[in-house]
């Protein structure tokens, strides 16, 4: 957590993907045109959100097994960081949708379910605020977090495959792999995902460190 090589790696990857996201060549597509470049900005948000939520579940499980307060704090802070990325993902998605599908909220399954998945984690944060006693709060929140995680997986990965979606790869739309994610785009897309995941993890560690400092000061 305190080493800096992966932070530098994340920063380099994000800078690389931003610069080449604007400059590299993209295949000519109808409707999307150049906005296909949003793939390097919008999609990595979701990847880092999912990674952060998984980190949170990991720490919740750890908390239940050894009752160490540090794990509880890690679980909350990674949810906070994940929510930040989720909101960014929703906003960029809405902007992109406005100019390609015509409406900011196009009643697309993935859009709806992503919003619901965020609601799930807002509920988690509300639950934490509702309980005053610290140990009890940590325990109950960890239980809800673990209980909600499989539901989020079902929401984001299973249900969209069942119905039609405007997103690529669902309901008859060909996936990105089929034609548009050519080798040029892969060269930028994968580093972008990795870079943003690292940046997300970095944000989470910063949040965790600040809040543990706050805790030491008040205690």
């Amino acid at each position: 957590m305190y080493k800096s090589w992966w932070k530098i790696l994340g920063a380099v990857l994000v800078v690389y993907s931003t610069v080449f996201g604007f400059l590299s060549s993209v295949p000519a597509l109808p409707i999307l045109h150049q906005s296909i470049r949003n793939l390097y900005f919008h999609v990595p948000m979701w990847f880092s959100m999912i990674v952060l939520f998984s980190v949170s579940v990991y720490h919740s499980i750890k908390y239940l097994s050894n009752n160490n307060e540090e794990h509880d704090m890690k679980a909350v802070q990674s949810v906070n960081a994940g929510v930040l990325f989720g909101v960014l993902g929703i906003i960029t998605g809405a902007i992109w949708a406005k100019f390609t599908w015509g409406q900011a909220w196009s009643f697309d399954v993935k859009q709806n379910f992503a919003a619901i998945a965020l609601l799930l984690y807002f509920a988690y944060l509300v639950l934490r605020n509702a309980i005053d006693e610290e140990q009890k709060r940590a325990k109950i929140a960890a239980i809800y977090n673990i209980f909600a995680f499989p539901m989020m997986v079902v929401l984001l990965f299973v249900l969209p495959r069942l119905s039609d979606s405007l997103h690529p790869g669902n309901g008859g739309n060909p996936g990105f792999n089929a034609y548009d994610l050519d080798s040029h785009m892969r060269m930028v897309f994968y580093p972008a995902c990795l870079g943003w995941i690292l940046i997300g993890y970095w944000i989470y560690t910063l949040l965790f460190r600040v809040s543990s400092l706050e805790k030491n000061k008040t205690a």
Partner: peptide, 16 residues
């Protein structure tokens, strides 16, 4: 060719 859409999205992420 909708390049501004990408620019706005990148700006939103920076703002975040």
């Amino acid at each position: 060719e909708k390049i501004y859409v990408v620019a706005v999205c990148a700006a939103v992420i920076l703002l975040g």
